[in-house]
Amino acid sequence: MKLKDQIALITGGSRGIGRATALMFAQEGADIAFCHLNDDAKAEETAAEIRALGRRAMHASVDVSDIAAGKAFADRVAAEFGPIDILFNNAGMNIRKPFEAYTEDEFDRIMAVHVKGMFFMAQAVYPAMVARGRGCIINVASQRGLKGAVNAAPYSAAKAAIIGFTRSLSWEAAPKGVRVNAVAPGPVVTDLTATMTDQDRQAFIDALPAGRFGRPEEIAATALLLAGPEGGFFVGATLSPNGGDVMH
């Protein structure tokens, strides 16, 4: 098992990429703590699947943009499960509309969840990782942070900021034994892409060299590579499984 007896904290873990990653990490031997936002029924389903794999699971509703709440959850995980080995910073949301139509509140919310929440959740687990001389932080960005998108200006800006944050923190963290990397998925079958119109979805698929959207499990496999023993030489990297939407 690649993650035997490690403790993983996953934000946005009840559905989609977060859920797939939680299950894959559990299959590889990790105990899983995850947060979600008012999604208790789906969260308990995910937790039950983790426990069925023989691993411990716990979850809580946490708004990651609330710094105190995020830190309290991280502290609870460390107290009940043990020191956190892996942080999968995945929580996200989006509001699609033309650039000129965004309100200040909408902009602030997108930035708070993606950038502020990710930054301070990493800060909540980082000192203990440094003290132990090891740890892994994986931040979920997006191919839209690499190329942009129509009707997604704040989201694309936030995801680009995550990539910059990942690179910057890596310079500080790697010499202390903590690896920080990012995953920038392309279009994946999740609740976020489910809000697209059929016409927009088909146009997107037609433009992809892969000819399809990705599966959450394919993104989880990328996270497992970064978290596991084969990922030891990835530092400050942004891996982008995106079906050819961005080639770099």
Rank of each mutant, 00 (worst) to 15 (best):
A33H: 02
G16E: 07
V178G: 04
V235C: 10
A220E: 03
E172N: 13
A26S: 10
Q27D: 10
P229T: 13
N38L: 10
R15F: 02
V150N: 12
M247E: 09
Y102R: 01
V77D: 07
P127N: 13
Y126L: 15
Q143V: 14
I162Y: 09
A157F: 00
N89T: 00
F234Y: 15
M247T: 15
F234W: 13
R15S: 03
I50K: 03
N242K: 09
I138R: 01
L169F: 11
F81V: 01
A112H: 00
P185Y: 12
N38I: 04
A30W: 13
A141W: 08
Q123T: 00
E28S: 11
I32T: 07
D5C: 06
R96S: 15
V130A: 08
R109W: 06
S168T: 14
F234H: 10
G148P: 04
A152P: 00
G145M: 09
G70V: 01
R56D: 06
G148V: 08
M1E: 12
G211I: 12
E104I: 07
Q6N: 04
P127H: 13
N139R: 02
S156W: 09
R201Y: 02
A91I: 08
L225V: 09
L23S: 03
E44T: 13
G12S: 04
L192N: 01
A149N: 14
S65V: 05
V125F: 10
A153R: 00
T195A: 14
T166Y: 12
G145N: 07
A210C: 12
M129G: 05
K147H: 02
R96N: 11
G186N: 07
W171S: 06
A52G: 15
R55D: 08
P127E: 13
A160K: 05
A210Q: 10
A20L: 08
S170G: 12
E217V: 06
M121S: 07
K147V: 15
I110C: 03
Q202R: 14
A161L: 06
E100S: 06
M58L: 15
V115P: 05
D66F: 11
V62K: 07
V62T: 05
Q6P: 00
D85G: 06
G145V: 04
S61F: 11
A174F: 09
Y155L: 03
A22L: 03
Y155T: 05
A152G: 11
A223M: 11
L146N: 10
F234E: 06
A210E: 04
